[in-house]
């Protein structure tokens, strides 16, 4: 490398100025990548939370539409939750499958093996317990509240669901209601 006499020290000077700048920029870049990853993870976890909450409400309302009987029981003393027992056998309503017509559906809230409270769908013979919420690798969810209020004379089932993301601690609370045209008072 050949450097003229009057240019001596230029490379060293440039190096001394640029290197701290580069270190600063690399630090900023790494921070940015970490922040972006964190935002992305939180975003996905919140999406999982919303999707699972809506899934629970969709399933309950769809089953309640075809149910002729409804029973509400306390689920656990630890959280404000109830179990919903529906009996679906309504020929006047348009059910899609035979099982929709005949099965008893139980929407139960419990905590299995010390895990957070999740909503399970228990089928006719109570052997198959399908978890509807929780267990998602993108972000677990916790059921904080699942309450029902049924008005027999109006055939309206009122549902309140509150869930929390285990990742972001974000809470969502939805209330909805479903009209049960095939309900028969016992």
């Amino acid at each position: 490398m050949k450097i003229k006499l009057n240019e001596r020290g230029f490379i060293l000077a440039e190096f001394l100025i640029a290197l701290p700048l580069l270190i600063l920029l690399l630090y900023a870049l790494v921070t940015l990548i970490i922040q972006t990853s964190k935002i992305a993870r939180e975003q996905v976890a919140d999406y999982v939370l919303e999707t699972e909450a809506q899934e629970v409400l969709d399933r309950i309302t769809a089953d309640a539409r075809t149910a002729y009987s409804v029973k509400i029981e306390p689920a656990t003393s630890l959280i404000d939750a109830e179990n919903l027992i529906l009996k679906c056998h309504n020929k006047s309503d348009k059910s899609t499958t035979l099982t929709d017509n005949l099965e008893k559906r139980v929407y139960a809230v419990y905590s299995a093996n010390g895990k957070p409270f999740h909503v399970y769908e228990v089928r006719q013979n109570e052997i198959f317990r399908n978890p509807i919420t929780g267990g998602n690798s993108y972000g677990d969810t916790i059921v904080r509240q699942l309450k029902y209020y049924f008005v027999p004379e109006k055939k309206v089932l009122h549902i309140t669901l509150e869930m929390e993301s285990d990742v972001t601690k974000q809470k969502v609370k939805f209330t909805t209601a479903v009209y049960m045209p095939g309900y028969q008072s016992e």
Partner: peptide, 16 residues
């Protein structure tokens, strides 16, 4: 989503 559920609630109340 809250609005959708509220609208469904309103429909249920109208039906009932």
């Amino acid at each position: 989503l809250t609005a959708i559920n509220l609208a469904n609630e309103q429909f249920a109340f109208i039906e009932g």
